[in-house]
Design a protein around this nucleic acid. Structure first.
Length: 258
DNA sequence: ATGCCAGGTAACACCTGA
């Protein structure tokens, strides 16, 4: 059994204590990180290596940043979304773990406000991701595309759909590309096993959103058919969001029969 | 319409996030 988790930590350095505590409790074999917000040179690599993880990072100063932690040695690492080589934002890293599982850590652009170049950038980035996933599926490998998608797939994934109309996370153009990705033959690891609606992975720091459960489901683990065949369990671990100095996102995870 | 909160950077204010 291999447990693969994804967590937007909102700064690896600010979250290191919480992260180490969670790794010691949950012991995932693989963790995909987003919004590490620091350069590769200032990433707290040795602290995580001390827990038995191999660490590969794509860092950036202040913003973005993704990483892969794996108890097996990551191989065949790519540091950019294929076809998007001109991107200057650190939002994608992918590697092979356990000799046969292709895992990608994805930090998809937020895209707000709509009707700006930020939204165009998001849609363009999503189109590159669609092409990459389409190409990857042709390999018939075990593929796990996980991360902060910044997509609210439907109105059951948001506490107040009215408040999020005209938002880049719910916009029809955003949802249309996400639907196209899912229609390639992808399985959403959380949703396929957890049918209750309004289960969230993100709660704003503001307005007491956590206390009121005013959340969003925007973190997703998407599986290729070969990965879906191995899916045992999945879930969202709400515990870290309730701690002191929490990230605004909480980990999402799945277990594969490997 | 704006700030609410949190993090980073740089400098004690401003940017970004979702």
């Amino acid at each position: 059994m291999v447990k693969i988790a994804s967590w937007n930590v909102n700064s690896i350095r600010a979250r290191l204590k919480n992260l180490i505590e969670w790794l010691n409790e949950e012991k995932p074999e693989v963790l995909l990180l987003q919004e590490t917000k620091t350069l590769d040179t200032t990433f707290p690599k040795s602290e995580l290596e001390d827990l038995g993880y191999n660490v590969v990072t794509l860092g950036q100063k202040s913003y973005n940043g993704v990483a892969i932690l794996s108890k097996s040695m990551p191989e065949d690492i790519i540091y950019c979304l294929p076809g998007n080589e001109d991107d200057d934002q650190a939002r994608f890293i992918e590697a092979t773990v356990y000799n046969k599982v292709r895992v990608a850590s994805i930090y998809l652009p937020n895209g707000n406000p709509i009707n700006t170049e930020k939204f165009d950038y998001k849609l363009q980035w999503m189109n590159h991701l669609y092409s990459h996933i389409k190409n990857s599926l042709e390999s018939e490998e075990i593929c796990v595309f996980a991360g902060d998608y910044n997509v609210i797939e439907n109105d059951n994934d948001v506490y107040d759909p009215i408040a999020f109309k005209d938002d880049a996370l719910t916009h029809n153009r955003t949802r249309d590309i996400f639907k196209k990705i899912n229609n390639l033959g992808i399985t959403n690891a959380f949703k396929v096993l957890n049918k209750t609606s309004h289960q969230y992975s993100y709660w704003d720091y503001q307005r007491g959103s956590w206390q009121k459960d005013n959340g969003l489901l925007i973190d997703h683990i998407l599986l290729s058919p070969e990965a879906s065949d191995l899916l045992l369990k999945s879930g969202i671990d709400r515990k870290p969001r309730g701690k002191q100095k929490a990230s605004d996102h909480t980990p999402i995870w799945c277990e594969l029969d490997i």
